[in-house]
Amino acid sequence: MSAERERRHADLERGLTYAIGGAIWLWLCFRWLNSWLGGVVVGPTEPLVPQSFATATESLGATLGAVGDGVPLVATGFDLVGWAVGMVGFASQYGPQLAVAAWLTVVLTVISTLVGLVVAVPLAAARVYGRVTKYVAFVYIELIRGTPLVAQLFLLYYGAPFLSKFIREVPGVGQGIVPAQAVWIAIIGFVINSSAYQAEYIRGSVESVDPGQLTAARAVGLDKLGGIRYVVLPQALRYAIPSWTNELVYLIKYSSLAMFITVPEIFTQADSIGSETFAYTNAYVLAAGFYLVLVVTASYGMSKVEAEVAIPGVGSSDAGR
């Protein structure tokens, strides 16, 4: 009886999550498509709901906020309610701008973590199995992890003008949906930074694979590289997924540092909305909402991946079977 109710409760919860998440992503995809096609439905950053809706909610919010003024606690309560109602109007008006900016955040993060992963795997392998390369990997990792990401971005953007010049001259950069050169420099910076962190995560998981398995691979006649490739890494990369997800989630938010090198991602856009409207709090809260959506989606997606590739019988979950 109660188990049945619990199950229905879980179903309802899941349904709601999918409905809300689905609606948000549908809207995001619509905004992106609309923007890429040069605003075929509405202007690229123009809201779908009329300006009057925003004005109405904002004045409703102001009215609610004024209720109970002078009475302690009650006034604060209504201030909050009033702010929340006003926030809906604010979001309806400025959400589209942030949605367009969110695309850049997605691009920055996804490309950087994936390319970072490709760089991190050999780094981690070198760190564990290398003789000379071990030291090279060690120095790289410690140097990158030991210096601030902002400093790395500044160095790449302002300290290496030839890099900007080179990227700008690559055909297609900054045209259509291909981002401009500052974005590519941000991606280079994030790849360098993220690869160092990912290499350490992967090193940990490589070391957690029983070395006897590599011995067995060698005993069958595989060379060391083959053993690492076919036996150690397939397991290590699985074990690295939880911490790798952590890195992905970090990078979604750390990508806001690209603001310092003029990349118009979520945070940059929130900042400019703030300076335009002086509603900084609203702008930042709205930006935070966008980051939250991206982060929750990423961790949900990665938990699906983790379950999908789980080795039957291994680990605490029974997700594999």
Partner: peptide, 28 residues
């Protein structure tokens, strides 16, 4: 590697490849 191809080895702790099925372990 040629030597090891010609000499099979069985270990005390089995050392099976944990991410591969029995068939894949043998087929590797």
């Amino acid at each position: 590697n040629e030597l090891r191809r010609q000499v099979g080895m069985v270990f005390q702790d089995f050392n099976l490849f944990a991410h591969l099925s029995a068939r894949e372990n043998v087929a590797l």
